[in-house]
Amino acid sequence: MREFPEWFRIPLGSWVDSVADWLTTEGAAVFQAISDVLFVLLLRIERALLWLPWPVLILLVAILAWRIVGIRLAGGVVVGLLFIGALGLWPEAMATLALVVSATLLATALGLPVGILMSGSDTARTMIRPLLDLMQTMPSFVYLIPALMLFGLGRVPALMATLVYAIPPVIRLTNLGIRQVSTSVVEAARSFGSTTMQILFWVQIPLAMPTIMAGINQTIMMALAMVVIASMIGAGGLGDEVLRAIGRLEVGRGFTGGISIVIMAIIIDRITAGLGERSQHDST
């Protein structure tokens, strides 16, 4: 008994294949529509980022960093972004940023309600949790295949793959944050005749904000990590640089692309983490 017998097989792979096939043929119109909408969103954001003269953008980000975190980060932002520009990767960086921003917006827009739903119902939590585990542990490359099949090559499938990979933290931490709100506070709100919605928006979400912000921060970081992988199906941007460098074994090119991603990651992380801390000060 060194091998499983031939008859003892579950054809899970071909089942998934047939579902995907069915989806591609029957759902073509739906996916085309989704694709069109997302493409427009992505394009608008990227155009806006590239339309802004780079000094203006750098200044804006620096001001943001200064207001939210402090003058030192603002200095770091200026140096870091100038460095990316000097490497000649400004358009690529903006393409990547557009993808990350779009993925984060979508992830938050979808993840918040799902997280809220999970926090309000144990049944929903029991059902959604394994799905999130699956999404987070599945090797990220695997997402590329259905995204490719359903949306073809390009930015939109890259966005979809990034979204799927990056959405779990915001869902998880929204759920956690709301559940962590002290029951005595919620009870008090209820005792004054608040409706479920009033409790949610006036009490639970404000108090869960630090945790939710931490979730969004993690989602952004995961989106940034995914863009490199998603470049294999046409995400473009900095990931493309790295991918090409791998193909041609160009160490220098790989390094400049990689370091640019690191710089962006640090800047985005510090700013969003600062936002999270601020909401924490507001609620304690």
Partner: peptide, 9 residues
């Protein structure tokens, strides 16, 4: 309430 149940935010 015993634990006050005030809204900290």
């Amino acid at each position: 309430f015993q634990q006050f149940g005030l809204f900290p935010h």
